[in-house]
């Protein structure tokens, strides 16, 4: 009877192993699904195609035609002739931020301390900034997270791995807490002023920072993942409706302090990208489906438009 049992066990193990091998082979051969075109949006932009796990940087024309690229990234952004590709680089899994020049050559590769979340390049192409999620490193383990936001100044080659070391003024008082997390950095066209989110405990703030003096000041609570408009007058950001409510996309006018909530953006979780001074592009997950890229008018005058499915990380450059 025992021999019988062992035989059944061995057969079961062999069956599972064969199934696994067969599955892997099938997955490898079944990857070349046709890349569908998008919807005409009047804007050309790059994005990461996530269909079938491709993570390929493609480009969409103003008419919705897709040009297929060759770069593989999890997050991508391009501006001023500089592209940055956050991608898988090693076991762990670990990731790196690879900076590419206009010719597509990697000029600098920065190892990252976590999973890529946000990436931006300043309009001049000189400042590359990113946010990664560091898991298993939350102070409130389990299930928590912390973030590291860093940047690379290509003018001097200076690498700052984390904004945590910047001096900070919170609600008018100099303060630095151990549980400070920064995320979603956006650098203005002067390549010196920047905006980001600062989080501590259950609170978060919009901060304005200075790369030269390495300091930040909180200017408004409840703002996450700011994105500065090309003309530097407005900030698009996500904000929660309630403590555990869904995020919505908003636009803050920096001069008047007015905030417009963009209709139909509930459930967004992205740092929006400005395609021009009037249009925002962002990734959002439609109900129980793959993420897709939508555009919304920045003045709140219209509903989101689905531009391309199974895609994320829109970049105007």
């Amino acid at each position: 009877m025992i021999r019988h049992r062992v035989a059944v066990g061995v057969i079961a193990i062999v069956a599972v192993v064969l199934f696994g091998i067969g599955y892997v082979v099938w997955t490898m051969s079944d990857r070349d699904a046709a890349a569908a075109p998008g919807t005409a949006s009047g804007h050309a932009f790059s994005f990461v195609d996530f269909a079938d796990g491709r993570t390929r940087v493609d480009r969409l024309g103003p008419d919705g035609a897709r040009s297929v690229g060759s770069l593989r990234c999890q997050r991508f952004y391009s501006a001023g002739g500089t592209s940055v590709c956050l991608r898988l680089s090693g076991v762990g899994p670990s990731y790196s931020a690879d900076v590419l020049d206009a010719g597509g050559t990697v000029v600098r590769s920065v190892p990252l301390p976590g999973v890529p979340s946000r990436v931006r390049v300043s309009a001049s192409g000189k400042i590359v900034s990113w946010t990664v999620f560091v898991t298993g490193d939350s102070y409130l383990a389990p299930g928590g997270f912390s973030t590291r936001t860093g940047y690379l100044d290509l003018r001097t080659g200076t690498l700052v791995e984390s904004l945590e070391d910047f001096s900070s003024i919170v609600d008018g008082r100099p303060e630095r807490r151990v549980d400070f997390n920064y995320w979603g950095m956006t650098v203005s066209s002067d390549d010196r002023t920047f905006y980001a989110t600062l989080g501590s405990g259950q609170q978060n703030w919009l901060v304005r920072g200075d790369l030269a003096t390495r300091s930040v000041t909180t200017i408004r609570p409840g703002v996450e993942c700011p994105s500065l408009s090309p003309d530097g007058t407005r900030i698009a950001f996500k904000q929660r409706g309630g403590r555990l409510g869904a995020w919505q996309l908003n636009v803050l006018d920096l001069r008047s302090g007015n905030v417009i909530t963009l209709p139909g953006t509930g459930g967004v979780d992205d740092q929006a990208a400005w395609l021009d001074d009037r249009t925002l592009a962002y990734a959002k997950v439609p109900q129980a489906s793959a993420p897709a890229i939508y555009t919304s008018p920045a003045d709140g005058s219209g509903e989101p438009r689905l531009v391309i499915g199974s895609a994320a990380s829109p970049s105007p450059g």
């Binding site: 979340s117 999620f133 939350s138 928590g144 997270f145 555990l244 979780d269 997950v285 994320a312």
Partner: peptide, 15 residues
């Protein structure tokens, strides 16, 4: 982050 475009915040509290 990539498959679902969600950040950890969404369910960290529940966890």
């Amino acid at each position: 982050l990539f498959g679902l475009q969600m950040s950890y915040l969404a369910f960290g509290v529940l966890d």
